[in-house]
Amino acid sequence: MGIFDFITGRKKPTPGELAKERLKVALVQDRMKVNPELLELIKSDLLTAISRRLDVDEQHVEIRLAREDHWDKLKAEVPIKRQKISFEWDPPAHTTAVTGLRGKVTVEVEKDDESEP
């Protein structure tokens, strides 16, 4: 961007620039769609990470790419299996200052029976 564009605010893009930007956005989505293997990999990485802490329903996990508010977003829906979730809070060694959080944490989830499948 030249100094003049800088003063006057953002310059209006040329049709060529516009085409390139639109193309880039379209390609991000195309590439994810034609590459389901990558999404599968991300999904399994996510599940490995999450299931260390939560008991999730792996059959109903959904992961997809969406474009919202000018951002490409990876959206994941990860249903939790059990109504009662308990997990170990285990801060790494270098955070010894936060002693208050060490120990076992249990979260009680109130279940609404009708909303369950």
């Binding site: 040329t14 049709p15 060529g16 620039e17 085409a19 390139k20 193309l23 880039k24 390609l27």
Partner: peptide
């Protein structure tokens, strides 16, 4: 050159 369509560099970059 006028910016009315994509350039070689644009296509290659993409």
């Amino acid at each position: 050159r006028r910016g009315d369509m994509m350039d070689v560099a644009d296509v290659l970059e993409v």
